[in-house]
């Protein structure tokens, strides 16, 4: 039954992603000035939005871990699993953003990369969370969890500063499509639909990945705990 449900979920997510692909590539009209290359927008922006969501989950879980570390160790372990899993999924999504961005920029701007506010912020965000994952590899046990949580908080603090710094400096990235002023927003309903479907599909896919990863991490925590108990008993 459980296996059946799992397969159904997988099939549903795959169907949703296929539908999102269909919408983005075949249904949405070709953009007037940029042409077909604009379609990368349907992947780039949803992934960017979701990577921010996952990093935010990681940040909140890290704070919860530190808060519960002494008072509720069981819940703290769950929070740590969420922090790690969402950081990993966030890095994957952020990598997609960093790869699709230059692919679009090359034909439209004529350059692969520029040190603009959003690009730099995203890159630094990616660097910080990669360093977070490295820290988690280089140390282990309860102390590593606390140290990683601290680093995650520092990383989250850094992001708005980087963003402000670069905005004062120079910016080339297109203005925000949503909430960027009276003229912003997608006018064509078919484009909006393609965008909406892709946000939904990627969100469901990402959350499923996150759920799997948390599940695996919780199991590994349990195994480590059992190994510790066995080692103590064997002594």
């Amino acid at each position: 039954m459980k296996r059946m449900l799992l397969l159904l979920t997988l099939a549903g997510v795959a169907a949703l992603m296929a539908w999102g692909f269909h919408q983005a590539i075949y249904v949405a009209p070709t953009e007037a000035t940029m042409g077909d290359v604009q379609r990368i927008f349907y992947y780039h922006v949803p992934n960017a939005m979701l990577s921010f969501l996952f990093f935010a989950i990681s940040f909140v879980s890290s704070i919860l871990f530190l808060a519960w570390r002494r008072s509720a160790p069981g819940r703290a372990q769950a929070a740590d699993a969420w922090a790690l899993a969402s950081a990993e999924v966030g890095v994957v999504f952020c990598s997609v953003v960093l790869i699709t961005g230059p692919l679009w920029a090359r034909p439209v701007w004529g350059i692969w990369w520029t040190w603009d506010a959003r690009l730099t912020t995203t890159l630094i965000l990616w660097l910080i969370y990669v360093s977070y994952l490295l820290l988690r590899r280089f140390a282990d046990g309860a102390q590593m969890q606390a140290l990683a949580a601290v680093l995650s908080i520092f990383g989250a603090l850094d992001v708005p500063i980087v963003y402000m710094a670069n905005r004062w400096w120079r910016t080339q990235h297109p203005a925000p499509v949503f909430g960027g002023g009276p003229d912003s927003g997608i006018k064509d309903p078919r484009m909006l639909a393609a965008f909406g479907w892709n946000v939904l599909a990627w969100a469901v896919w990402g959350l499923m990945l996150l759920a799997f990863r948390v599940h695996v991490e919780r199991r590994q925590q349990k195994i480590r705990q059992m190994q510790t108990v066995a080692a103590l008993a064997g002594k």
Partner: peptide, 25 residues
């Protein structure tokens, strides 16, 4: 923070540089 890890000398620049970037700029 990094002194608690296995390869402590290596870890410090890896976590310090990204955090320090805005100040460097």
């Amino acid at each position: 923070l990094s002194i608690r890890s296995r390869n402590r000398e290596l870890l410090l620049p890896l976590i310090l540089f990204p955090i320090f970037l805005p100040a460097l700029l």
